[in-house]
């Protein structure tokens, strides 16, 4: 019996430490990724990176100023389409919907969220690039907006639903119409959460590469209009990382650091906003 007990205790100890080990492993991967990227990227990051255009292949120096602007343009287009559509559709799901149709929309949004980004790229290529026969920022931004919409829909619906029913009833009892209640009471009460959902959504699409490969494509110069092929940081990282030039690898690291900095800042900032919000509401 005591042999058996000792065995059970040993199994207990071994398995519990194994689960701890798993956690250490996964967390250390994150730290390694961050550390390696910061070290390599920090070494490579220069002022020229932010201000200059790329040099010709193999030539040292140059930067990715055009890709930084391009990424901003693409995000701008995606946000201009994706945020309003996602937000208003989310309002419908939370406030105006019945039972059947919202279920269908919710399911569709989930489905769209699960579509591989490369397939979204194919779709944007078919509906925008094929008819006009050239790559453009519009096509890339459209592809990104399709990835943004389902994220914003779900965030909006979730945070609107978390507003207490009594707030709505109070407003309706005062004689306000339903849409007036939604606009002046429900949305302001949940705007902080919705905004963080939107920021996270934008941060997520900022790093997307696959849908841009054959929609906004790439460009080594300033693009003069949104109707032209447009460079973006993620696509530049991809092209530079698989190139044979050391200097391009160096720049890929720098771009990776900038991109990761952007994404992680957004994630950590929204987390802090949400934490502070919940504690002030409780207090």
């Amino acid at each position: 019996m005591s042999m058996h007990l000792r065995w059970r205790k040993t199994v207990n100890l071994v398995m519990l430490s194994l689960t701890g080990l798993c956690t250490v492993l996964t967390v250390s991967i994150l730290l390694l990724i961050l550390g390696y990227l910061v070290w390599n990227g920090g070494r490579s990051l220069t002022w020229a990176f932010f201000t200059q255009l790329p040099k010709s292949p193999g030539e040292a120096g140059g930067g990715m100023a055009h890709a930084i602007l391009g990424t901003a343009q693409l995000i701008g287009i995606a946000a201009a389409i994706g945020l309003p559509v996602g937000f208003i559709a989310g309002v419908y799901l939370a406030e105006f919907g019945g039972t059947t149709f919202p279920f269908v929309i919710r399911y569709t949004a989930d489905l769209l969220n699960g579509v591989p980004s490369i397939v979204i790229g194919i779709f944007a290529y078919i509906v925008i690039v094929l008819p006009v026969k050239h790559f453009s920022a519009w096509a890339g931004g459209f592809a990104l907006s399709l990835m943004l919409i389902p994220i914003v829909v779900r965030a909006t619906e979730q945070f609107l639903r978390s507003v207490p029913l009594s707030l709505r009833e109070g407003s309706l009892a005062l004689g306000a119409s339903q849409w007036r209640t939604v606009l002046s009471v429900v949305i302001p009460a949940s705007i902080r959460g919705i905004a963080t959902g939107m920021i996270l959504g934008v941060a997520r699409i900022a790093g997307e590469t696959a849908p841009l490969l054959f929609t906004s494509f790439g460009n080594n110069f300033w693009s003069s209009s949104l109707n032209q092929p447009t460079a973006s940081l993620p696509v530049m990282i991809f092209n530079y990382a698989i190139s044979p030039y050391d200097d391009w690898h160096r720049q890929a690291w720098a771009a990776g650091l900038v991109l990761l900095g952007l994404v992680l800042t957004a994630n950590i900032a929204t987390r802090l906003i949400l934490l502070r919000g919940s504690s002030t509401q409780r207090g």
């Binding site: 559509v85 559709a89 419908y92 149709f101 397939v119 779709f123 119409s177 339903q178 939604v182």
Partner: peptide, 30 residues
């Protein structure tokens, strides 16, 4: 319009329906 819940309902419905339409269009185009 000011009192019009039906209009708000319709507008938000159209946006929600656009998600369904675009997903169907995606499948059709593929």
């Amino acid at each position: 319009v000011w009192k019009g819940d039906s209009i708000a309902h319709l507008v938000t419905f159209l946006f929600a329906a656009s998600i369904l339409l675009i997903t169907l269009l995606l499948i059709y185009q593929l």
